[in-house]
Every structure is written in structure tokens, then in C-alpha cells.
Amino acid sequence: MATKEQQTIPVSVIETPDISLSSKEQQGIDELISHSPQLAGITIDALKLIQAERGWVSDASLHALSLYTQIPVADLDSVATFYNLIFRQPVGKVVLHPCDGISCDLMGGEHIRQCLKQQLNITAGETTPDNRFTLIPLPCLGACDKAPVMIANKQLFENVTTDELPKLLSTFNEVS
């Protein structure tokens, strides 16, 4: 198709993505497209699908997705940067989501987060140098009666105490 990309000067030529979609990803996206009344409707699900496969959504992944779906990169990135759970930077093997909602804070949540930071020696949003952990506090995880809580590896940890944090982290070490 005679797109404007082809007609303009080299500066705007989009780099060929070095990571194209795997056949599994392509199948998943085809499936999404078949359900959605309009193409754009798949954007969030497609981004989540890519992230599930790759851990995060890189620029190259965005281009690959755009190339496959014909949704403009700017549209994909506009949506990707809007949502909390789409990671546009690489994350560690385990993403720790300690709750920073008010109910957890009332029960000492802030202290838990502080301890996590100290033990991992990173601040919120950072990844440990060994690439094991990324710390991303999330607001109210909806388990306020069990406060303070944390989500990691799709698992909810309730009534977290500072004492059990080292053990908790080490179980992830074993898993990963």
C-alpha cells in the first residue's frame, strides 16, 4: 500500500523491528481480532498478550505488533503508556506489587514497602541488578481485611509482616 511512510524522507523511516511476533502471539492476536467489532478494540488485550509472552512491551515489540495488526505505533504506545499494568521498561523475573492503598498503610503497609526497598536495595520502579525483582507498588489490591498485602507471581500474600519478608523473597529465588 502506498503509505506516507514510503513517500517521506529517510528520517521518518521506521526501523524494521528485530523481534517479529511468534506464531503463538500471532494466533492469539488473530483470535482477538475475530472477536472485536473494530480493529482498535484489541489494543489492550494484544498488549497484555505480548507482555505475557515477553515480560514487558519494548519499542520493537510495539513495532512488531503494529506491523502485524496495522494499528499505528503511536496508537499502541498511547494506550500502553496510559495503563499501569503495561510495562514499557524491562522488569525482573518477579514483579513485586506491595499494596500502597490506604487500608494497608493504616496497617503498616508503608513499613513493609520500606523494608522491601532496603532488602532489595532498590526504590519503587526499579529492578534489582540481578534482574530478579522489580518493585512496583500498586494502589489498593482489594484485600483490605488482610492488610498489609502484596501480589507477586499472580499470587496474593496476605497479612504480610516484615519478619517474614526475607523468607518470602527467598521462595521466589527458589522458584526462579
Binding site: A80, T81, F82, Y83, N84, L85, I86, F87, R88, Q89, V91, D100, D105, G108, G109, E110, H111, Q114, K117, T123, A124, G125, I136, P137, L138
Partner: peptide
Amino acid sequence: KRQGIDETGTPCIKGSGGDK
């Protein structure tokens, strides 16, 4: 009070902040 509120007090949630 909980100890050690960090300097900015704002957790950086990736993806929502347009960090890049």
C-alpha cells in the same frame, strides 16, 4: 508514623508515567 517516607513520596509506576 511509618518510617522512612521516601524523598519524593511518589512511587513511580511504570507505564503510567511516560518515564521515557
